[in-house]
Design a protein around this nucleic acid. Structure first.
Lengths: 121, 121
DNA sequence: CCGCATCCTAAGGGATACTG
DNA sequence: CAGTATCCCTTAGGATGCGG
């Protein structure tokens, strides 16, 4: 066992994960992994997100270097978002996480059930 | 390559990860992986967390089956929190994530720097 | 010792309207 | 088309005091 390997949790770590694993980031990253997208393409792809949240999340992802924003100043203006190499490195870890979630979701739902049921008869 | 393997992001997934990867969960899980803890032990171990947040997080973790809360109704009452087998399965994925953060933090900080600097001269 | 209840503040997120 | 700006409401979170 390696076990002494602590989960070293620095503020930087937490901050970073907060920025990258927030509510909409995963969905956006998911889309951008498939293909570069225009702003409104993303809106259509993720209908639940509001324009404000989408803008905010994209800005944050851009700032953290996982998404690239390319403006074509040509005409009414075209903006294309794409994933960066750094962004691509996120897929592995995220996939592991989603895998975990997938695998243990039933157990967790059972736990929730038990917990919620325990309160009353 | 598996790559077509989409990041399937269901609401359940997001919800689950939100519950388990929130601000204090990682630190708490970290502590409980070392040893079972009393409530105030945890407070001492994680001084930044307030009692309210700690209680809330522990409850949520308990509900999701990753933490067990054992009450010894003996005397002034003793409560012991410990990690469950399900909780232990989280270490792997989380470790991968922290690893990623560790590895790419410099690149990300550079990206932030570049982004923040780009605004002005 | 453990934790709930209350109060309060700050931040997140939706809806809407308006600009380059 | 791609945002920015504003208003408003809901939520998370800290501080504090009390109760089992």
């Amino acid at each position: 066992m390696d076990t002494p390997a602590e989960l070293r949790i620095s503020t930087a770590h937490r901050e970073l994960l907060d920025q990258v694993l927030d509510k909409w980031s995963l969905s956006i990253l998911n889309e951008l992994c498939e293909r570069p997208c225009r702003f409104n393409e993303l809106r259509r792809a993720i209908p639940e997100v509001t324009q404000k949240s989408l803008t905010g999340t994209l800005r944050r992802l851009e700032r953290n270097g996982v998404v690239e924003r390319k403006v074509t100043s040509t005409r009414p203006v075209a903006v294309t978002y794409s994933i960066t190499p750094l962004g691509k490195t996120l897929r592995g870890p995220v996939d592991v996480l989603l895998d975990w979630a997938d695998q243990h979701l039933p157990a967790i739902e059972a736990a929730r059930d038990a917990f919620d049921g325990a309160g009353d008869a």
